[in-house]
């Protein structure tokens, strides 16, 4: 094939990659749902994602254009003109070490706050620390949820008046809540895609995970760490309620669970 075709070949694919990436959200290939995170922390994560995406896109275009240009000029060099004899350039090396190095360092330190906010307990929102709503125990292949009785705090060991659910976690919307994540058997991972939350459940450990659902609604919960043959079907959901509905729901649940069928006339 002629040189032009190969240059086109190496031109078309990055262009195609860019076009597809730009159009992806309109074809629903972007973030799940409407593309916006349903939690404040998720919005922070999306922001960091887009910061990296923009940087990476610039570097991608720059390097691919550079590659294409040198291919164009090198493949078009006349046969009687020998290649440029050079072993490199110290100044260039210094430039393309220091500038990317500085950008990368900035990028690294720019991430710290959100990570601390998500994982380091002293940086958790105060409300999240106060509001431990449930204990979530993963097992092959379901999520078991234990809530404290209305008005009580979640204890480490189960209490008689605790309430239970399977695969459905009820939480109040609009406020940070914490769950205590455990596993009864192998590793699992608590993944809320539309909230951008993920945390592995570790045998022998209890790991606090906080999240805040912005709006009432139902949000998928899946497992993101291989846990056996049924890993793919370990589905659950988080149902967020308006705070007053949430209290009412807990009361109702408690009454249902504690009801022994005896009625006074």
């Amino acid at each position: 094939m002629k040189r032009v075709w190969w240059l086109l070949f190496f031109l078309i694919w990055p262009v195609l990659a860019l076009v597809i990436s730009v159009l992806a959200p309109t074809w629903n290939w972007g973030f799940p749902g409407n593309g916006r995170a349903d939690s404040p922390l998720g919005e922070d994560i999306d922001h960091l994602f887009y910061v990296i995406l923009i940087l990476v896109t610039i570097v991608f275009i720059g390097t691919q254009v550079g590659l294409l240009y040198v291919l164009y000029s090198a493949s078009g060099r006349k046969a009687d003109r020998p290649a440029w004899y050079t072993h490199g350039n110290h100044r260039l090396e210094a430039i393309w070490t220091i500038i990317p190095g500085a950008i990368l360092l900035f990028l690294a330190f720019y991430q710290m706050r959100v990570w601390a906010n998500f994982r380091i307990e002293s940086a958790f929102p105060e409300a999240a620390r106060q509001h431990v709503v449930a204990e979530v125990t993963a097992r092959q292949f379901e999520w078991r949820i234990r809530y404290p009785a209305p008005g009580k705090k979640l204890e480490k060991t189960p209490r008689l008046d605790d309430m239970y659910d399977v695969n459905i976690i009820h939480v109040p919307a609009g406020t940070p809540v914490t769950i205590q994540l455990r596993t009864q058997d192998v590793q699992h991972s608590f993944f809320l895609p539309s909230l951008r939350i993920k945390q592995d459940a570790l045998p022998g450990h209890v790991i606090p995970v906080w999240f805040e659902v912005s709006q009432p609604g139902e949000y998928p919960l899946v497992c993101a760490e291989l846990c056996g043959w049924g890993h793919y079907k370990m589905a659950g959901k988080v149902i967020a309620h308006a705070p007053e509905d949430y209290e009412a729901l807990l009361q109702r649940k408690h009454i249902e669970q504690m009801d022994d069928g005896y009625r006074e006339e």
Binding site: V70, L92, L107, A108
Partner: peptide, 24 residues
């Protein structure tokens, strides 16, 4: 993240190697 730096240096040097070369 810093490991991206030596990787980037290598990419730049490969592009630099093609630069001014005579290639088929």
């Amino acid at each position: 993240i810093m490991i991206a730096l030596p990787s980037a240096i290598k990419v730049f040097n490969w592009i630099g190697t093609i630069w001014g070369g005579q290639l088929e």
